[in-house]
Design a protein around this nucleic acid. Structure first.
Lengths: 342, 342
DNA sequence: CTGAAAGCGCTTACAG
DNA sequence: CTGAAAGCGCTTACAG
């Protein structure tokens, strides 16, 4: 059963293809009667415009690309949900690609999306990405691009972020306020901007409060991702290296939960012996024992805002309106729970 | 900067568009020299075929649609990962849509994908879906369709499933084998086939072991999804209704973790007072305390297999080969942990 | 108000 | 080995 075409509608009605097309698009210079007739026949024959032809003519696909480091991840899957919810409302579909934190893959995927002629791209950078030519190429080709969460400051496009530095400062300040004097930091992998910013916030909170900054208290993740296992391992290392640490600010809830699990196993009391603050407010952080004090990171909203920005850029480009790049900073919040003292 | 077209390549080389096109596709009747020349120029000008035109000619989009009840979900996001990994290898892109467990949305999304002319559709049914006309329509339009996890047995298409009934039987048997005599079941929402099958497996294990089946021990989720809150609530209800229950088989790990959290809070000892078995082997089940005995449900593999089946169908249809529908049943496994007696 | 025509950028059967 | 031509199914500027 071949799909019905405009031509067939035209033939059944003894009209020209142009008239049928215009009737369907409610052109004002088509008679009411014709429009009615066309619409009836379209319903009757269950006509659906051939998207391929429409794309070719309009040079639009009504599809955007999304590149994300990892799909199986509480925060990112919330972002995805926000993006596709918003996109669907505006009639856009979302092609999703996973970079696995690899720069090489990310580059290839940008190319793929480009050759598919998506109308725009949303991206959260891979941890491995330290070179931004592939992104600047997009911009010079005038393809709307919005970065979110893991961004590169030097790339000249719209962004949706949180203030990682400020949030990390707040988290660390909370540890200090609840009596911690010797505060460690699990900072995650080296490259991504948000790891850097969270580290800087941690450091600034220390020095602002007159506490010495000690690099040996900062644990870097060599494996490249923020895993449960990493949390366990860093926790063990920390106990081995230091006996006086009374607080830790951890880059990500998943890692924090790993650390807590390990501390529980080793009989370290939280928060009595060591207080812990995580980051992201993953659902699980309210479930483990003790519950985890953390920073709420609004994933769903981030997805929504990122799509909204992209949509505006696509629209402006179509109307040749000037494009003003924008960086939206979403609010974070400290969620106090059982892993820190009252 | 407009994208480069075949025509421009042809002009720079003083060739016809046809020759350039054929050279690019390595037609055997084009001279080596021409091919070389064309490929050089293509690289030089950074030519990328216009996907819209290619789609229109070949009537293929090299894109498939994926409809999934919920993105923010450990099991489903693993499936997504498996699908896009496999799809990328075969040169297919994946458009992802979320039905929010709603039949109406699911129907609309099928329509959307149809009008986008995707090459095939992968779907896991919404809990709200009790009517299958929208799916049968796809089949009668000859669009490749593969269902996974939450399927409808009566729809005549390829499927990737686990044997929910058998897995539930194993889970319940394990409770019996470890000494439980009065076993409850949190069965989740009413409609989906896998809830039904897990319930049937539970029931059969009871009767096969000479234990009475008591409907008052089966808790149905009214809210329609399997949530942490539901687990807490059902746990409370259960304690209120019954004092002699010594084991529960729970539909999903998320719900089981809710229940365990509630039991922990109320001082119920697991597994001494009540043993608990979950379903899906979510990462978190190895982290909570006590760790959760559960059934491993291979999400990533399911995604991979589902795409492989769809790919084969797409290929066969192109070659007009006969299409043989297939149902793949993936292995599940009981993972014994701390929430059941040794 | 309606329709003929051009064209989007490819692919491919056909001719030479 | 190369190229002219038709056509995929639309949209839209233009003519009448």
């Amino acid at each position: 059963m071949k799909p019905v075409t405009l031509k067939q509608i035209a033939e059944t009605l003894n009209m020209s293809v142009s008239t049928v097309s215009k009737a369907l698009k409610d052109y004002p210079d088509v008679s009411k009667k014709t429009k009615r007739l066309v619409k009836e026949t379209v319903d009757l024959l269950n006509y659906k415009p051939n998207a391929f032809a429409v794309n070719l003519r309009t040079k639009e696909s009504k599809t955007i690309g999304l590149i994300i480091p990892e799909v199986v991840h509480h925060f990112f899957s919330s972002v995805i949900k926000g993006i596709i919810a918003r996109a669907e409302k505006k009639g856009y579909l979302v092609i999703i690609l996973q970079s696995n934190e690899s720069y090489e893959l990310e580059k290839k995927q940008i190319d793929l999306l480009l050759s598919k002629r998506v109308d725009g791209i949303l991206i959260s950078l891979a941890n491995g990405t330290g070179n931004f030519k592939h992104l600047n190429d997009l911009i010079s080709q005038d393809l709307p691009l919005v970065m979110f969460d893991k961004i590169a400051k030097i790339v000249n496009c719209s962004k949706v972020i949180i203030n990682d530095r400020k949030a990390a400062y707040t988290a660390t300040q909370h540890l200090i306020d609840t009596g911690c004097k010797r505060i460690a930091h699990f900072r995650g992998p080296l490259l991504p901007q948000n790891s850097i910013d969270r580290f800087l916030g941690y450091k600034k909170a220390l020095t602002d409060n007159g506490l010495p900054y000690d690099p040996s208290l900062v644990y870097i993740c060599e494996c490249g991702d923020n895993s449960f296992e990493e949390g366990k391992e860093s926790a063990r290392k920390l106990l081995n290296d230091h006996t006086d640490v009374d607080g830790i600010f951890i880059n990500t809830d998943m890692v924090a939960i790993g650390a807590i699990t390990e501390f529980n196993k080793l009989g370290i009391k939280i928060p009595e012996d060591i207080s812990v603050v995580g980051f992201s407010n993953w659902f699980m952080s309210s479930v483990i024992s003790p519950t985890l004090t953390t920073i709420n990171q609004p994933g769903y909203e981030m997805g929504k805002e990122a799509f909204k920005l992209l949509y505006k850029e696509i629209k402006n480009r179509k109307q040749n309106s000037p494009i003003k790049l924008k960086t939206i900073e979403l609010e974070t919040k400290l969620i106090k729970r059982g892993s820190t003292k009252n």
